[in-house]
Write a protein that binds this DNA or RNA. Structure first.
Lengths: 162, 162
DNA sequence: GGCTAAATGTAGCTTCAGCTACACTTTAAC
DNA sequence: GTTAAAGTGTAGCTGAAGCTACATTTAGCC
């Protein structure tokens, strides 16, 4: 706060250094928090994508294999191996060499929550008239950035359109 | 397709190797494309966040400085310097040592588009009853994952609620 | 005009997600 | 039972985003 900036609060657009901090900082801090939250979401979304997909594979076919995950995600199998090791360290899955990949209780809980959110967003997008293909695509991206409050609002919209 | 997998299409849930490819692959490829699109979005969203913020700073205060960007984004100034170098290489901004950061025409166009999307999402979230703070937060994250089609649907919802 | 604090830039590290290339197991077909 | 293809694992690279620590430049104040 030792800014010897011009305290001339009549800023305007032309000054070069020293801005009126104080008030503006509040909004800035607020925004920084939002960006931070988004960045944090970015870090967890890959883990969520994996457990959600693994749950799908297990539930619909019996087992989750490295190749299947790689195919569905569109990445190389080596990337899958590495990422699975990471989420294993996080306690979300278990695996033994050359055996399949399984969810821990925590992993299963996250997968279920993820899937529920995904379904809500998908249903919501369909409800407001978005085409199936686009809904599928956008839901994948939006999924990790919708707070419970927003999801609740989505549910209200879905209900109101039925 | 030299898979000597059991061509027994009556798959079920118990088999270990060799799955019925063919039909299932279509859905898998489709999904892979969605994941790929989301990953690609992830790569561009930081660049978009930067140009959008730089545009805001320029428009509302006259100049975009490294510290201001760092403050607003909640990252260290070193990170900003590095990222600005990257988006400069992409042709979105210009800068000279110890001088401010400015948008190129392309950068300005992207910033404008980004801001427009942001505003639509914000208005939409407010319209369906999401609180201001949450709307601000979620808009930040959703912004990069809404296709034009979805945005158009949002606009329709906003209109229908006025 | 000098001095000092703020701003900026640089160096070098970490983690993560992606890749290719190569090595090793499993398993299914014969 | 062998054997070769499919699947899995490992090594080592890249690029991006983040950090801290240190060096340099700028500019406001006296």
């Amino acid at each position: 706060m030792t800014a010897r900036g011009t305290e001339s609060v009549g800023q305007g657009a032309g000054r070069r250094r020293g801005r009126a901090k104080h008030l503006l900082d509040v909004a800035a801090k607020e925004r920084a928090r939002n960006f931070r939250a988004t960045r944090d979401a970015r870090k967890t979304e890959i883990a969520e994508d994996y457990v959600e997909l693994i749950a799908d594979l297990i539930d619909s076919g019996g087992e989750a294999r490295t190749v299947d995950i790689a195919d569905r995600l569109g990445v190389s199998h080596a990337t899958v191996v590495k990422t699975v090791a990471r989420i294993k360290a996080l306690g979300l899955v278990t695996s033994r060499p050359y055996r399949g990949i399984f969810l821990t209780e925590r992993g299963r809980a996250i997968a279920n929550a993820s899937r529920a959110r995904h379904e809500v967003i998908l249903a919501f997008l369909r409800a407001i008239g978005v085409s199936e293909a686009t809904a599928q695509r956008d839901a994948e991206g939006m999924e990790h950035h919708c707070s419970p409050e927003t999801l609740a609002a989505f549910v209200r919209v879905i209900r109101s359109r039925r």
